[in-house]
Amino acid sequence: MTEISGYCADRFQGVRCELERQLDSGAELGASICVTVDGEPVVDLWGGHLDEDRTVPWRTDTLVNVFSISKTMTALCALLLVDRGELDVHQKVAHYWPEFAANGKGDIEIRHILAHTSGVSGWQPPIDLADIYDAEAAAARLAAQPPWWEPGSASGYHALNYGHLVGEVIRRVTGRSLGRFFAEELAGPLGADFHIGTGPEHRDRIASLIPPPAVQFDMSTLDQDSILVKTLTSPLLDIAETASPGWQGAEIGAVNGHGNARSVARVQSVVSCGGSLDGRKLLSDKTLDLIFEQQSDGVDQALLVPLRFGIGYGLPHPQTAPAVPEGRVCWWAGYGGAIVVNDLDHRLTFAYTMNKMEPGILGSARADAYLRATYAAVREGAA
């Protein structure tokens, strides 16, 4: 039986049992799960290995690339500025970033880039992955191009460029890069081991990602000018490249955040705890309400699955996220399976990170199993 380390309150033993089952079966290689209630961990578990050869155990301080969970950290940075009166979600992006008005983008609002409805869901091809490592140069390319659909009319998942759009606004407002702002305003003050731009001093504790089985589908058969193809291939994500110093050190606020379940839950519990953590008020009720202002509800033009977006987060959807409960809940997932759920009704945050990826951009069967075990305990405690 695979050894699991950490803490798990008695009521949540079903989560530990599910993690043991997934590790023992080989479905999981290495993983961490954290559940906080009122900002305090009731589950903080980890187990398995960092590497495919199973020579290095997953430790308490292991980090892993969590892909699009990074977007929730980027969104939270923007919401901090909103709360301070330095950013208005209904203001034009070009008010803060004048160059962005080029090519018909003058009416795009901050809420549009935060909710994936801006019409700018990727870079105008051709572009290589390494080109997005320079955040300012990559943002300048986005500022120069036209939108791919009418802004505000529908969502089109900003898969790789979310952090470049939001991060450039943050840089224009604060004079600080996204990674620096996040470190100084959230990760540092909260004591969270999460990084947008991960330095070489952390390299030895980063888990290797195991790519999902290749999807037997020929993208060349699709319309190369479609929003789906342009979004997901401009540039094309290469899992092997995520192990490079260039990728890890870049500030790619959409997809290259490195952390673990504990650090994800620590930061995101600011939301589930009503904007306050450790006696410090970071977000007002008015700002939190923005998260739940629905911006779109329908088939996403980039992913071709039904999604609901508020401002900065996904909202529950029974088809796309069946294990995410209804209510005052916001969530998002990372490519391969990582997920975070903030439940303001129960003041609960659930986070799961892993290195053996499952197919699919949003969520996974393993994530759903852990989340269901968590809510079984929540319901039992409420009975």
Score class of each variant (00 low, 15 high):
330 C>I: 00
331 W>E: 12
318 P>C: 10
315 L>T: 00
292 F>S: 02
319 Q>S: 15
329 V>Y: 00
323 A>I: 10
314 G>K: 13
302 A>K: 03
332 W>C: 05
326 E>K: 13
331 W>M: 08
328 R>L: 10
301 Q>V: 06
327 G>H: 09
297 D>T: 12
307 L>A: 15
293 E>R: 15
320 T>E: 03
315 L>S: 01
326 E>D: 15
312 G>V: 08
324 V>H: 06
315 L>H: 03
311 I>W: 08
337 G>R: 05
329 V>H: 02
317 H>F: 08
288 L>Q: 06
329 V>C: 07
294 Q>M: 15
305 V>W: 00
323 A>N: 07
314 G>A: 14
335 Y>I: 14
326 E>I: 13
321 A>P: 02
291 I>T: 01
291 I>K: 08
293 E>V: 11
299 V>D: 07
288 L>V: 01
328 R>S: 06
295 Q>P: 04
321 A>R: 03
317 H>E: 02
311 I>A: 07
311 I>C: 06
295 Q>L: 10
330 C>P: 03
335 Y>W: 14
299 V>P: 10
299 V>G: 07
332 W>H: 14
289 D>Y: 04
318 P>T: 12
294 Q>W: 08
318 P>F: 02
320 T>K: 01
288 L>N: 00
287 T>W: 05
327 G>Y: 06
313 Y>I: 01
312 G>I: 09
292 F>Y: 15
299 V>R: 07
305 V>F: 04
316 P>F: 02
287 T>L: 10
334 G>Q: 13
290 L>C: 09
315 L>D: 04
323 A>V: 06
309 F>M: 10
300 D>G: 02
316 P>K: 05
315 L>R: 00
330 C>M: 04
336 G>V: 13
296 S>D: 14
314 G>E: 14
305 V>K: 05
309 F>C: 06
315 L>F: 02
316 P>C: 04
291 I>N: 00
315 L>W: 00
302 A>P: 06
290 L>D: 10
318 P>R: 14
303 L>M: 09
298 G>Q: 14
299 V>Y: 04
301 Q>E: 11
335 Y>Q: 14
313 Y>T: 04
322 P>G: 12
318 P>Q: 14
295 Q>H: 07
295 Q>G: 08
330 C>W: 07
325 P>N: 15
287 T>S: 13
305 V>Y: 00
297 D>Q: 14
331 W>Q: 02
290 L>R: 08
331 W>T: 11
303 L>C: 11
300 D>K: 05
331 W>A: 01
289 D>L: 08
311 I>D: 09
314 G>F: 11
322 P>T: 12
306 P>W: 11
325 P>Y: 11
330 C>T: 01
324 V>E: 02
292 F>Q: 00
316 P>V: 03
335 Y>V: 15
325 P>G: 12
317 H>C: 09
320 T>A: 07
325 P>H: 11
333 A>C: 15
313 Y>E: 01
320 T>H: 11
306 P>A: 13
336 G>K: 05
295 Q>V: 04
295 Q>R: 01
310 G>C: 06
321 A>Y: 00
322 P>K: 12
322 P>M: 09
327 G>A: 06
304 L>W: 13
319 Q>W: 15
319 Q>H: 12
292 F>V: 06
323 A>G: 13
305 V>C: 03
324 V>I: 12
336 G>R: 05
334 G>F: 10
330 C>D: 02
294 Q>T: 15
332 W>V: 08
334 G>M: 12
290 L>F: 02
314 G>D: 13
291 I>W: 00
317 H>N: 12
303 L>P: 03
323 A>Q: 00
336 G>L: 11
